[in-house]
Each structure stands twice: as structure tokens, then as C-alpha cells.
């Protein structure tokens, strides 16, 4: 409870079954590969405070069940997400083919402004690759996504994926493209100090302890 941060972002990890969503999350939170894992039924989550561009940001990450029939249930936690990791498995074309559907879900159910990073996971299994880097990066470009190939096993690019997504959101806040105070933005202020920096906007907000700024 005592941790302080400037912002809190809600993140989603989405993608087809067996692409390694939970392992990515686990690698990011615990810094190790989850060897014996259950598949996700419903929802899992984790959080971590990171430092991005001089700001501390708490990432609250919701990990979703991948099987198609769970979508109706997982929809209910898309609400108000600021960012998403859209995951496919580079050794499975099928998981790549369903990306468009996942993306539509994210943009319609979470927010049209949701910042999405495409993650081609299982990079360590390069010999079994079914989806080339080039192909996926083209898809990313066409859909205005960031793109990285990751490995939850080795940890390669895992942290980068989360950080890149967070950095983009921060930039958008700075440029005014994203308004944290809009309902359902998936962004919250961490503590009062930041609120005060933006005082003009929230004049009506009660700040009981003015600290002379």
C-alpha cells in the first residue's frame, strides 16, 4: 500500500490460447520463466512499479484466458485499459491469423485510443518459426501498432515490451493526446503531488494539504 507512483496504467495481455501470455506476465513481474503453469481460466493479474522517463508508473496488468469461448467473459475486464500486449506465437500461424479479431476487441471494448504493442512470443523457438519478422512488422505498421519479438523463456524483450507501451502512453499524455482525467482512460494519478502539478485542470479537486507550490 505504501508504494508511491506518479501514474497507474491498466494493461491487458491478450491473444490466442497457448501463446505465452501468462508466462510473459510472470517473466515481467518475477523475472523468471514459469515452468509449471496452469492455463488461465478467467483472469489473472499482476502489478509492478516501473520507472519510465523519470516518472514512476504502476502497471496493473490483467492477463486473460486465450480460448475463443472465453471472450464473452474476458470482455468484462477490457473496460478502461490504457495499454495492451497483443501476443501471438511465432511458431503458430493460427495464432497470428487471429490477431485482427483480438485487435478489434481491444479497440472496441477497451478504448479506441488504447496503445497496443504486438508481441511475437517464443522467439527462442526460431527453428520452428511459422511467421516471419517482416510479415508481422508489416501487419503492425498497417494497424499502427508497435512491434517486438519476445521470449518469455529467456526474458528477451519482455521488459522492453511493457516499458515501450508505458512510454508511449506517457508521451501521449504529455502531448495532450490522452487525457488521464477522462473516464475509462485506464490512467490514474498516483498521488496528490502530481495532481497539484496539473492544478488548473482540476480546480475543484479538494487538496487538503497545500504544500506551497
Amino acid at each position: 500500500m505504501a508504494e508511491t507512483y506518479d501514474f497507474l496504467f491498466k494493461f491487458l495481455v491478450i491473444g490466442s490460447a497457448g501463446t505465452g501470455k501468462s508466462c510473459l506476465l510472470h517473466q515481467f513481474i518475477e523475472n523468471k520463466f514459469k515452468q509449471d503453469s496452469n492455463h488461465t481460466i478467467g483472469v489473472e493479474f499482476g502489478s509492478r512499479v516501473v520507472n519510465v522517463g523519470g516518472k514512476t508508473v504502476k502497471l496493473q496488468i490483467w492477463d486473460t484466458a486465450g480460448q475463443e469461448r472465453f471472450r464473452s467473459v474476458t470482455r468484462s475486464y477490457y473496460r478502461g485499459a490504457a495499454g495492451a500486449l497483443l501476443v501471438y506465437d511465432i511458431t503458430s500461424r493460427e495464432t497470428y491469423n487471429s490477431l485482427a479479431a483480438w485487435l478489434t476487441d481491444a479497440r472496441t471494448l477497451a478504448s479506441p485510443n488504447i496503445v497496443v504493442i504486438l508481441c511475437g512470443n517464443k522467439k527462442d523457438l526460431d527453428p520452428e518459426r511459422e511467421v516471419t519478422f517482416l510479415e508481422a512488422s508489416r501487419f503492425a505498421q498497417e494497424n499502427e501498432l508497435m512491434f517486438l519479438e519476445t521470449s518469455a523463456l529467456t526474458g528477451e524483450n519482455v521488459e522492453e515490451a511493457f516499458l515501450k507501451c508505458a512510454r508511449t502512453i506517457l508521451n501521449k499524455i504529455d502531448s495532450g493526446e490522452l487525457d488521464p482525467e477522462r473516464m475509462g482512460s485506464g490512467i490514474q494519478y498516483g498521488d496528490a503531488s502530481l495532481r497539484q502539478l496539473r492544478q488548473p485542470r482540476s480546480a475543484q479537486a479538494v487538496t487538503p494539504q497545500p504544500c506551497g507550490c
Binding site: 481460466i41 478467467g42 483472469v43 467473459v73 468484462s76 475486464y77
Partner: peptide, 12 residues
Amino acid sequence: DPVLYMTEWFMC
């Protein structure tokens, strides 16, 4: 929503 916490309980 209930489905956020009861899905796994009930289904399994």
C-alpha cells in the same frame, strides 16, 4: 462483475 472472480471457481 461476478465473472471476474467466479469463472474459475465455478467452471473447475
